[in-house]
Design a protein around this nucleic acid. Structure first.
Length: 573
RNA sequence: CCGGGCGUGGCGCAGUCUGGUAGCGCACUACAAUGGGGUUGUAGGGGUCGAGUGUUCGAAUCACUCCGUCCGGACCA
């Protein structure tokens, strides 16, 4: 390709509405343009990258035995009503009406459609297991789209759905998908990690997420120092404290705390150890509890894990924090002075809270706290559960080593769905004994457009993108110096261009009449991994200059050795 | 949706406080010089100042309403 026929829409200055590196660079390098919030056009250069990722995903899915199909993006409401998700999914589901006033939605995911297909097409256990996938545009009406294509409303996704007669068969396919995902992200040249995950709104039991490691990631991931344990912080278990609760050492006493509304203020003003303070959070209770609200207790130095809290049978799902009026009406004090002593609400304490003595809590009277409080002496121990987020240094839940925390971008997620959809939608096959049984299902997603952004997030410098070779839009930039003036340069460049193309190498020849610095800056911005510079000086010695995007020094290569050298570097045989 | 910021040629911004001819840099067009790290000069084209209403002799500028957009919270590939 020649730049004269493949315009590079690069920007020298960073658009002001882009915050993170990948978003800025995608705009500056001319990969994408914004149409509206969360909606992006992929320009030719960006689309080349997207297609590369798509192609790797397709190859590995095929290799893993999945079968490609293509389902409609627009889906009838009836199927979503059947699964119950027309109500459950919420405003993120973009609902639309046709001219006959019938309800449809633009698909955010395709469990309902594939389950409908499966119940019509699959009759016998002999047809199982089977795994269908598609690569298609999804739409989610996100509350807060952000970071360009990282969290956009319309995005390209690979979604796969497998059907099984047994849990054992599902486990086999699940493991195969796990391996396929590992290969995909390795081939894309990404540093990533598979982690245990919460299955969220899609439903089901076992689940792993694949995270690209990057400081700008929206998720926190916990790793063990000594084992291969890794989990999303949402799902990471906070192990029960290993030590027994100490015996009471202090008397319980009331303290005036006029200026302490937060734990931080309380700790500073009264010189208390933060790990012996308790935060009392009031949330809506579920119908299983004989109260509107319920209190959750976590240590002052810990954060509530909302995912864990929401799963407790006593807590309403989705989780909702009580507002100030509700708290005042139920307890008679403001949010800064709450505690479990004489609390007129049911209560659940985190494991770590149950293991401390001589702690400080709000007194349920404005500007008053209790100090030196002890379980079973001053108040009964409430229900205990794991409701906090793990923190750096916590013991690993598998008992080996301690946890550290890193940031990640979720690019893939695999689930064992079980029979959630097949039972709701009556998707059955006949088993060996001729009995109709609901199929066991798995589903597997990759955010293809997000992979592109994540790759940039992980591979860039102050000059621009540094594409991993496998997903680069072009492998080689061919830059002639003073081509307009030099017949020799022109001839040498055209010859090399032909040879490289013939060798199956994707080369971008910069034939614009611009100065060298301009070419260098553009090629570095758009991240072409290999660069050849053809100038009179080197040609005198029969050589051209070569430089990888990751290197800072040129090397001189004989003009006849170039093609072979690049074939080796690019692994083309 | 809640909180905060911002809307002025394609992009980055000044001008708004204190109302009075709409400006700068990049990009773009033409010509010339230059030619190994975003070169230089000359000459050009392009803007209902987010929208509406109001105040005023006069509004980018003041007031009100709405819209868009970005960041943090909530959700997810």
């Amino acid at each position: 390709m020649r730049t004269s026929r493949f315009p590079l829409q690069t920007l020298k200055e960073t658009p002001s509405d882009a915050e993170i590196a990948s978003h800025q660079l995608m705009l500056r390098a001319g990969l994408i343009r914004k149409l509206a919030t969360g909606l992006y056009t992929w320009l030719p250069l960006g689309l080349k990258v997207l297609k590369k990722v798509e192609s790797i995903v397709r190859q590995e899915m095929d290799r893993a035995g999945a079968l490609e199909l293509l389902m409609p993006a627009v889906q009838p409401a009836e199927l979503w009503q059947e699964s119950g998700r027309w109500e459950e999914y919420g405003p993120e589901l973009l609902r639309i009406r046709d001219r006959h006033n019938r309800d449809f939605c633009f698909g955010p995911t395709h469990e309902e459609i594939i389950t409908d297909l499966a119940r019509n097409e699959l009759q016998s256990y002999k047809q199982l297991p089977i795994n269908f996938y598609q690569i298609q545009t999804k739409f989610r009406d996100e509350i807060r789209p952000r970071f360009g294509v990282m969290r956009s409303r319309e995005f390209l996704m690979k979604d796969a759905y497998s059907f099984h007669i047994s849990q054992a068969s599902l486990q086999q396919t699940y493991d195969r998908m796990y391996q396929a995902y590992t290969r995909i992200f390795e081939r894309c040249g990404l540093a990533f990690r598979a982690v245990q995950a919460d299955s969220g709104a899609i439903g089901g039991n076992r689940s792993h997420e694949f995270h690209v490691l990057a400081d700008s990631g929206e998720d926190a991931i916990a790793f063990s120092s000594n084992s291969d344990y890794a989990a999303n912080v949402e799902a990471a278990e906070a192990a029960a404290p290993a030590t027994e609760r100490p015996s009471p050492g202090e008397e319980m006493r009331m303290q005036e705390t006029p200026d302490a509304k937060t734990i931080q203020e309380l700790v500073e003003q009264f010189d208390l150890p933060i790990e012996r303070t308790v935060k009392t959070l009031i949330v809506a209770a579920s119908e299983a509890v004989d109260a509107e609200l319920i209190a959750l207790l976590v240590r002052g130095d810990h954060e509530l894990n909302e995912t864990k809290a929401e799963k407790l049978p006593q807590v309403a799902s989705p989780l909702r924090f009580a507002n100030d009026e509700e708290i005042r009406e139920a307890i008679g004090a403001g949010a800064g002075s709450l505690g479990p002593v004489n609390l007129p609400l049911p209560c659940i304490a985190d494991r770590s809270v149950a293991a401390i003595a001589d702690f400080s809590v709000g007194a349920n009277i404005d500007h008053q706290h209790w100090l030196g409080v002890n379980w079973e002496r001053d108040l009964p121990l409430p229900d205990v559960a794991d409701i906090r987020c793990v923190v750096e240094g916590d013991p690993s839940p598998d008992g080996e080593g301690v946890l550290s925390i890193a940031r990640g971008i979720e690019v893939g997620h695999i689930f064992q769905l079980g029979k959630k959809y097949s039972e709701a939608m009556n998707a059955t096959v006949l088993d060996e004994s001729g009995r109709a049984v609901a199929m066991t299902m798995g589903c597997y997603g990759i955010g293809i457009s997000r992979v592109v952004a994540a790759a940039i997030e992980q591979n860039h410098d102050d000059r621009g993108i540094i594409w991993p070779t496998a997903i680069a839009p072009f492998q080689v930039a061919l830059l002639p110096m003073k081509m307009a003036k030099s017949q020799r340069v022109r001839e040498a460049v055209e010859m090399l261009y032909r040879q490289l193309n013939d060798a199956g190498i994707e080369v971008l020849l910069d034939d614009r009449d611009v100065r060298p610095g301009f070419m260098f800056a553009d090629m570095e911005l758009i991240g072409i991994p290999h660069r050849l510079v053809i100038g009179e000086r080197a040609l005198d010695q029969g050589k051209v200059e070569y430089r990888a995007r990751t290197e800072s020094e040129n090397s001189m290569i004989g003009i006849d050795d170039i093609v072979q050298m690049l074939r080796e570097r690019l692994n083309i045989t």
